[in-house]
Simulated assay, not measured.
Amino acid sequence: MPKRVAFFPGKEPIENYFNIQSKREQIFEPHYNLTPGQHIPVVFKNGDTLSLDRIRWGDENSRNTTVPVNEAAALTDDKKWIPCAIPLSGFYIWKDDKEEGSPFFIRMLSGPLMVAAGLLHSKEEYFQIITTEANVLIKPMSETMPLLFDRELSHLWLNQSEEVDNILNRAKNLFLLTDLSVTRVSEEVNDPSNNSEELVQPIPK
């Protein structure tokens, strides 16, 4: 289950990916160790256009941070839940999700942007990351991982222009082992107060 994420893709990749523009430069400030309860950039449909804003990850008590993919489809029937996409640089995992010992950083090999599927609670203004069964690369350490989208599925999800079940099922097997990188990183990640670029640098085996 994702408990920490990193965000440092920069402004241009996000704007190009979602075909949006924002003059709020602070939204794109990098952060290398984001935890539930913190505000993270999120893309969602606002009227007829896509918006980008910082939204709290999890409710006010930092709970409800994730939702399994098999429950996410049902939630979209409730109008207070809005499909959203979370642009990330990657996420951290630990053996058995214990947030101790050696952390590992997972990122995309194809570019600076990893997009996770999410649901935004429009009334309480927090979001959850949708999770799916971990692939064989990640499963030795964690049973689940974020459900990841490519550009096509991101836009279908945000615009609700295809059946929800179809979008989520297509995303489950979207990325192969060769699409992701898993590297061991510094145990400094274990302290949520640490936030520096060095946290995502691979440690030699």
Rank of each mutant, 00 (worst) to 15 (best):
E133W: 07
P112N: 09
N70C: 11
L113M: 09
D150I: 09
F149A: 15
A117N: 07
W157I: 05
L174D: 12
E133F: 05
E162H: 14
Y92E: 03
I138W: 05
G118Y: 03
R56G: 02
N166P: 13
L180Y: 01
I93C: 08
F127K: 08
I86G: 02
M114L: 15
G90I: 02
I167A: 01
L148I: 06
P140H: 14
M141E: 10
S51Q: 10
P68C: 05
S89K: 06
E60P: 08
C84G: 10
G118L: 01
P140I: 14
V67E: 00
S142V: 13
L177W: 08
Y126S: 00
R63L: 03
A72D: 08
P112L: 05
L168K: 03
L75T: 06
P83I: 01
N173G: 05
W94V: 03
E162L: 06
K95M: 08
V115I: 05
E133A: 07
G111E: 06
M145I: 04
E99N: 07
S181E: 11
D179H: 05
L75M: 10
I106T: 05
M141Q: 06
R63V: 02
L180D: 08
F127T: 01
K80E: 11
A73T: 12
A73V: 11
A117S: 07
P103I: 01
A117F: 07
S51P: 13
T178Y: 12
L156K: 12
L177N: 15
I93F: 14
P146R: 04
L75I: 06
S154G: 09
E125G: 15
T65W: 00
I55F: 03
N61L: 12
Q128P: 00
V67A: 02
A117G: 12
L120Q: 00
H155D: 13
P103Q: 01
E143H: 12
H121K: 05
A116I: 02
K80S: 14
A134R: 01
R56E: 01
I130A: 01
